[in-house]
């Protein structure tokens, strides 16, 4: 349970960063923190304590997979891991684009402060 709460705290830190900070780079970092919180949460959903990797081919099974003390086989869920791999790549693309835009904004405005970005009225 405590892990999930920590995820929530991490997520809130990111959200706080986006809402309060005035520096463009800090906002981008805030978005990154939010992404990591969500990714961590999703990964934790698939984790079982004492779980092993779920490869069911005969050789691997005989060689590596061991039952726990009560004789059960516990596996982690592989699907969240595959999904989060995709989500990380998407996050990378978004961060790259945002940093590129922030650099261009610095070239045009000479500042990373969002208070100085005042061409639009919202």
């Amino acid at each position: 349970m405590i892990e999930y709460l920590l995820c929530l705290i991490l997520f809130s830190v990111g959200l706080y960063c986006i809402l309060i900070k005035r520096n463009l780079i800090k906002i981008i970092i805030g978005l990154g923190i939010m992404e990591y919180a969500v990714n961590l949460f999703f990964i934790l959903l698939g984790y079982r304590s004492g779980g092993q990797f779920p490869i069911l081919s005969k050789d691997v099974f005989a060689q590596f997979i061991r039952p726990d003390k009560s004789g059960n086989y516990i596996f982690v869920d592989p699907i969240p891991q595959a999904l989060i791999l995709t989500a990380i790549v998407i996050g990378l693309a978004v961060t790259c684009l945002l940093v590129a835009i922030a650099l261009r904004i610095y070239e045009k405005y000479g500042s990373y402060d969002i208070e100085d970005l005042n061409k639009l009225k919202g």
């Binding site: 904004i105 061409k119 639009l120």
Partner: peptide, 11 residues
């Protein structure tokens, strides 16, 4: 300037 600002906000 305007385009970059709008795009950042949107993103």
């Amino acid at each position: 300037q305007e385009e970059l600002e709008a795009s950042f906000k949107y993103a």
